[in-house]
């Protein structure tokens, strides 16, 4: 057997750091919306909205024909050419709904705007469990979508696994807990919520570690040749530093160690800040490593 044609997807399809940042912001906004159902704080609402807007701006900037988007939508509506089989189409729908919901929630959390009678309906909706349940669901689906988006890219065998949407939900949950920890450091949420978040966060870190190792192990051992080469790049190749130091060391083990220290010796805000920033960085590194590791299935001549 003779392997030729090793092409990195990042060199041809150009899905690299811009898309990793998009997936990261969508994850923070998505699972942040689930957290908002339980912790209805203005900083969280603003973080969700800002993350979503920045994420969308990043992904639009990545389009090589972004200027054609209005024309495309016009013709797609006119000719009903939407592709319901495409996860990217559902992503447009889900992210649009999520953006509208998050705009309403931000509106309701800015007291200055409540003096305008025509904007008060936002505050009413923000009190509704049904509305916030819908907001949480839209956020969860946005995170799930960001996983399926790459899982269904059939050209890159490393990504063609059901584990990625699950891994994305777990890691986005880690990022949301980290955001809440940062809010506690800044004094924006109460200690009770932060303590709950710490225990949840440690459990999620362990699950994320298991999922990351399972992703690499399965791809290395039973994946196709393209998946194996991609996983090898993460395990021992040019992306090993990003995987072992960035994703696992900084992103999982450091927050776990700080969490264990905190449980034993009590909270230290500077340490919690380090833990939160490390966890957030780890979630970004995970998305970048998985994207950058993707190669096409080598064609055997």
């Amino acid at each position: 057997m003779n392997v030729a044609d090793l092409t990195l997807q990042a060199d041809v399809a150009h899905w690299s750091w811009t898309i990793a940042l998009f997936l990261w912001f969508v994850g923070i906004a998505g699972m942040g919306s689930v957290a908002y159902y339980f912790s209805r704080k203005a900083p969280l609402a603003i973080t969700i909205f800002a993350s979503l807007v920045i994420g969308l701006l990043l992904v639009v900037s990545h389009l090589t024909r972004w200027w054609n988007l209005p024309v495309t939508i016009f013709y797609a509506v006119l000719e009903l050419s939407f592709n319901f089989q495409s996860w990217m189409f559902w992503g447009f729908v889900i992210l649009s709904v999520h953006l509208v919901f998050s705009a309403v929630v931000v509106l309701a959390n800015i007291p200055y705007l409540q003096r305008f009678w025509f904007l008060r309906w936002g505050a009413v909706l923000n009190q509704s469990n049904l509305f916030l349940g819908g907001f949480a669901f839209a956020g969860f689906m946005a995170t799930v979508y960001s996983g399926f988006l790459i899982s269904t890219a059939a050209g890159v065998p490393l990504w063609n696994t059901a584990l990625i949407p699950v891994l994305w939900v777990i890691s986005a949950s880690v990022a949301t807990v980290a955001v809440l920890e940062l809010f506690y450091v800044f004094g924006w949420v109460e200690e009770r919520e932060a303590a709950f978040g710490l225990r949840i966060g440690m459990g999620l870190d362990v699950m994320k570690l298991l999922a990351v190792l399972a992703f690499i192990h399965i791809s290395l051992t039973v994946g196709t040749m393209g998946a194996q080469i991609g996983a090898e790049r993460m395990f021992s190749g040019d992306l090993a530093m990003l995987t072992w130091i960035g994703v696992i060391g900084i992103g999982i083990l450091l927050p776990l160690a700080i969490g264990a220290f905190t449980l034993l010796f009590g909270k230290k805000k500077p340490l919690l800040a380090v833990s939160a920033v490390a966890a957030l960085a780890g979630v970004l590194f995970l998305r970048a490593a998985v994207l950058l590791a993707g190669i096409w299935e080598p064609l055997v001549i």
């Binding site: 399809a13 090589t64 495309t72 797609a76």
Partner: peptide, 17 residues
């Protein structure tokens, strides 16, 4: 071409590169 936004999803989705 009218309906293309340049997302590269078709590029990443093609198993034949």
């Amino acid at each position: 071409e009218r309906l293309c936004i340049g997302c590269s999803y078709c590029v990443a989705a093609c198993p034949y590169n």
